[in-house]
Design a protein around this nucleic acid. Structure first.
Lengths: 216, 216
DNA sequence: TGAAATTTGTTATAATCATAACAAATATTA
DNA sequence: TAATATTTGTTATGATTATAACAAATTTCA
């Protein structure tokens, strides 16, 4: 039988939702009450029809000639993304990338709360700045069982990634946000999300060479 | 008239190519000569048919019953991605995220070479570790004109993003890899690639809540 | 040497995503 | 109050991406 792998459609829409949320909060702070799909589209660099389709997913409905209620949209997107209740996470690997995530305001705005970090050399990492404690990697299993987070953020070296993953899975972690280039093997009930900077660079590189060609 | 915006198709394939490359280089180091689509698929967590379709894009052809020559594939992917000749870039904003990019080995492997970095407070950033000089932001325009890089990596605060972009564009930069949450306005002949961690988190969050629902 | 097994590559189909066209709804204005 | 303008939401279409089915090719082994 095929691996039951939880198809989620409208993935491109889901990817755009945080950007909408960001924009809407900005507008809200400015005191705006409503916004039209064409305005959002303009700010996002996409077509108004795509905005309307995206917002449809949140079940928030606008009013003709006026647009959408910004507050409703914010609530709708937050609800859809499952924010509201914050998501507690461990971060493993406090290198430069790890540190940058520890202090990423955007992620906090989306309800991510990193409650503890782990590193092979905890004394080397300077994390007090964010008020998040950094433990030695050897304490990961124990603390994961005790604190019972369901999400882990993986920023270790690719060679260490699978070992750390196994510890996390054994401790009951259900989601792994994987910033390493390793392809993790996990049981069916654990979700992994791979974040890969290389792929973005590849797209940019291809676009630039294609553009150069077009210009002769 | 509609903005001429350089459609590139097979974008999902292009996004996967760096991962193939990574894997193939690994296999090559291990002394392997050939590889089958099913083996690559297994390692990447996708279907063999998708691998064959992806590799088709590189114009490298395999041999039945044997598979693909690993060396050929590596060359083919590198060629397709326009690597081989390294791409020189400026990095602007040497915060934690910026620093982590400065030392990202994966990106170097893809031919990215950051030749200079810029920051509002250059003395604060510790970059000698990577041997890349960090200049004050006020020198950006001058050096961009002199050194003539075509790519810039943007890691500044979102509020500063557009100003820095304008300087870069005026200096002739043709591609901007945007790690800020700002939506940049650029002329038609400049390409931007937005990198957005929030979107990955949104996908993960939705998948996890959906999974939790499914489990009651 | 010939049959079998396995893997590629092609052609066909299905699924997903983006865009278009237009009707319905509602505020604005004469 | 009625006409107008504008914006949403729906239904239809097109484009892109993923998957399936199978024929062609090539090694292996009897």
């Amino acid at each position: 039988m095929k691996r039951r792998d939880l198809k989620i459609d409208k993935l491109p829409t889901i990817r755009r939702l945080p950007a909408y949320l960001n924009l809407l909060r900005e507008l809200s702070i400015k005191g705006e009450q409503t916004v039209s799909s064409s305005h959002l589209a303009e700010r996002m660099g996409i077509e108004p029809i795509l905005v309307r389709k995206d917002l449809e997913l949140t079940r928030i409905t606008g009013t003709p000639r006026i647009g959408y209620s910004i507050q409703d949209l914010i609530g709708g997107i937050e609800g859809f993304l499952g924010l509201g209740d914050t998501l507690d996470a461990f971060l493993i690997g406090v290198g430069q990338l790890g540190s940058s995530l520890l202090s990423n305001q955007n992620l906090m705005n989306l309800g991510l709360r990193i409650v503890a970090a782990f590193d092979k050399e905890p004394q080397k990492s300077r994390s007090e700045a964010n008020g998040i404690p950094v433990f030695g990697l050897e304490r990961l299993g124990e603390l994961a069982r005790r604190i019972n987070v369901c999400l882990a953020i993986l920023c270790v070296q690719p060679e260490e990634a699978q070992d750390v993953t196994d510890i996390l899975v054994a401790a009951g972690v259900k989601g792994i946000w994987n910033f390493t280039s390793a392809n993790l093997v996990v049981p069916d009930d654990v979700i992994t999300q791979n974040e890969d900077l290389s792929s973005g660079f590849a797209v940019l590189s291809v676009k630039m060479t294609k553009r150069k060609m077009a210009a002769h």
